[in-house]
């Protein structure tokens, strides 16, 4: 692999012991089927040694290192989602009204208990009941068992 830093000087082509390097349209390239990474010829790959701009990276490891260093590849994605709509008093009151209507229709005691708790929480969020009152209700439902129904 010769990176895009190649300045097209041709030094590597002349020095390659196995003639694996040829000119390509805008830079030189190494034929990976011919390149032996200078095994048996030189202690370090010759092209890497002669290249004036360090563009030659014949070994796979050094290529991957370069690819990572030159780019921001493989970073985790940044995911954006719309924020859920803010819970305005009007929205909470609407929810409370709907629960009120449901409560009038429901006869099942378990469901009624769940509805009452949900309503108390909304009333507390809306400031219609005090913290102390809500804490009491919460405590009641914490200990609530369906056997009572």
């Amino acid at each position: 692999m010769i990176t895009a830093e190649c300045i097209n000087c041709g030094a590597c082509e002349l020095d390659c012991p196995v003639r694996a390097i040829t000119p390509a349209p805008s830079q030189f390239r190494i034929d990976p089927m011919v390149c032996m990474e200078c095994d048996g010829y030189y202690p370090v790959p010759r092209c890497q040694w002669v290249c004036p701009v360090s563009a030659c990276a014949p070994e796979r490891e050094s290529y991957l290192f370069k690819a990572r260093a030159l780019t921001n590849r493989g970073a985790p994605p940044v995911v954006l989602r719309a924020a859920p709509p803010a819970e305005t008093p009007a929205i909470l009151q609407g929810r409370l009204d709907r629960l009120q209507k449901q409560l009038a229709l429901v006869t099942n005691k378990e469901t009624r208990a769940e509805l009452r708790y949900a309503m108390a929480k909304l009333q507390w969020q809306l400031g219609q009941i005090t913290d102390a009152e809500f804490a009491e209700i919460e405590k009641f439902y914490e200990n609530f068992t369906y056997e009572w129904c």
């Binding site: 985790p76 994605p77 940044v78 995911v79 719309a82």
Partner: peptide, 13 residues
């Protein structure tokens, strides 16, 4: 795009 409920994934090649 987000208001329509679509998700936007950036840096996602």
């Amino acid at each position: 795009v987000l208001a329509h409920g679509a998700e936007v994934w950036l840096m996602s090649r």
